[in-house]
Design a protein around this nucleic acid. Structure first.
Lengths: 155, 155
DNA sequence: GCGCAAGTGTTATGTTATAACGATACTCAA
DNA sequence: TTGAGTATCGTTATAACATAACACTTGCGC
């Protein structure tokens, strides 16, 4: 799995989350900060146990699964992270401000994920749900395939 | 989890899969038939271990996980089942003939899943992927919320 | 017969996630 | 100041989901 890039998100991302937490009265503890930093520095989404490992190294002591899962849950609830269901992995949400109308593009070669907005998609899903009498609370849209960099190589 | 309905799919569904297998030269073994029947008779998607349990009962002897996972993989590969990633569950594919342009509507109250087609969705995703230079191989579109029957009750 | 592929059985293990309980620290009102 | 309430994190154990690796049988073409 080559990763032709460094970080999934700009370095400012953790600061933006920090600021959003301040505004909303949410606590940014050292534990949370470390989990955020680990995800921000990763070129691709990480599984929970990969985070546990990285965090244990970073804190110099073993961290147990519930600690990390609680932290992930906190960030997921507040929209700072995505859970990539098709991969059981977690990634920074790049579009902090607004509703999640995004599509996740997951490259099966390099492993990276990219998040793009698509208003037409939101409208389509909304009308489909309405026609079915369905009231949506959460949406997951994931495309698995090959990213711009990997598609040619793997022709 | 009330399930205001009986089966997720019409009784003809297993026969349709049978016919499709015949056409494509795929073997419908007793094991495969039983797994199919279990899913067809369930009002909601089932997890792998629920299938293992039901199958063990049906066959009168314990069935080990790999046996069921292999069977599921077979049906997934050929487009007869969906894997619902957000739930680690498996459900019949109701639209056997054509491409998967579907949306899964997952009710968080009754647990049922409904599959609806949405051509506008397909177009939106296609153009979004193209703009990103992304070549899609598989798509997952899942909406979690409340179905027509459950939405009013849980107002 | 022999080699090969498909299907299934079997054992063991790997991976992902949560339940349940305890400890600490902080806030805030009485 | 005390003590009730809440939020955070630690710890132990276990549940839930999934696969690796190898064995065996069957059917089929050569």
């Amino acid at each position: 799995m080559s990763t032709h890039g460094k970080h999934a998100v700009p370095k400012s991302w953790t600061r933006e989350v920090q600021a959003a937490c301040d505004r909303q009265g949410l606590q940014m503890t050292p534990l949370r900060h470390n989990v955020l930093a680990i995800l921000a520095e990763s070129p691709a989404p990480l599984g929970a146990y990969a985070i546990i490992e990285a965090l244990s190294k970073r804190e110099g002591k073993p961290i147990a699964p519930p600690t990390v899962y609680r932290t992930l849950e906190f960030f997921l609830e507040h929209g700072f992270l995505h859970k990539i269901e098709s991969r059981n992995a977690y990634a920074p949400c790049e579009h902090l401000g607004h509703a999640h109308e995004g599509v996740l593009l997951l490259c099966e070669i390099c492993g990276r994920s990219d998040e793009v907005e698509d208003p037409a998609l939101g409208r389509a899903l909304q009308s489909t749900a309405e026609r079915a009498g369905f009231s949506t609370r959460r949406r997951m849209v994931e495309l698995v395939g090959r990213c711009r960099e990997c598609a040619p190589a793997a022709a």
